[in-house]
């Protein structure tokens, strides 16, 4: 029973990781490519980490929860990196399939905000 659950989690995780990278390789402009790794890959690795937590909790006595730490870290950092990358891409005026927004009062350096975002 546990084996079945573990296998399913592992397969789902690997599948999502793969699809994320597939999106990265397959889609046509930077902004659409950004979606695959931020969402699919993050959830994929999340699934694998849950599988790992279940596996070590069952195998050794006492629950193993430190995988939660990595999952949390990933789920917090993935959108931050995505945001920074998208911002850099807008700054560099990369080719985009969607019409890009007008570069409004985007002050090139706003350290206070940036730090806020990275926290």
């Amino acid at each position: 029973m546990i084996d079945l659950l573990l296998s399913l989690l592992i397969l789902a995780g690997a599948m999502f990781t793969f699809i994320g990278s597939l999106g990265l390789a397959r889609l046509r402009d930077f902004y659409t490519r950004l979606h695959g790794p931020t969402k699919a890959t993050t959830l994929g690795v999340g699934c694998l980490l849950v599988a790992s937590a279940v596996f070590f909790s069952v195998r050794e006595e006492g629950i193993s929860l430190h995988e939660v730490l990595v999952s949390l870290f990933l789920f917090i950092t993935a959108p931050v990196s995505a945001h920074l990358l998208a911002k850099a891409a807008l700054h560099l005026k990369l080719k985009s399939l969607a019409p890009t927004p007008a570069p409004d009062s985007d002050s090139p350096s706003n350290p206070a905000l940036e730090r806020d975002r990275a926290d």
Binding site: Y31, H35, A78, P79, V80, H83, P101, D106, R117
Partner: peptide, 22 residues
């Protein structure tokens, strides 16, 4: 920040830029 991160993690959207005046 939480809203921007939420947007990036949920269906088909990524937050790209916060305007200078927030």
């Amino acid at each position: 920040s939480l809203l921007a991160n939420t947007i990036s993690l949920t269906p088909g959207t990524v937050s790209v830029l916060l305007s200078g005046d927030r």
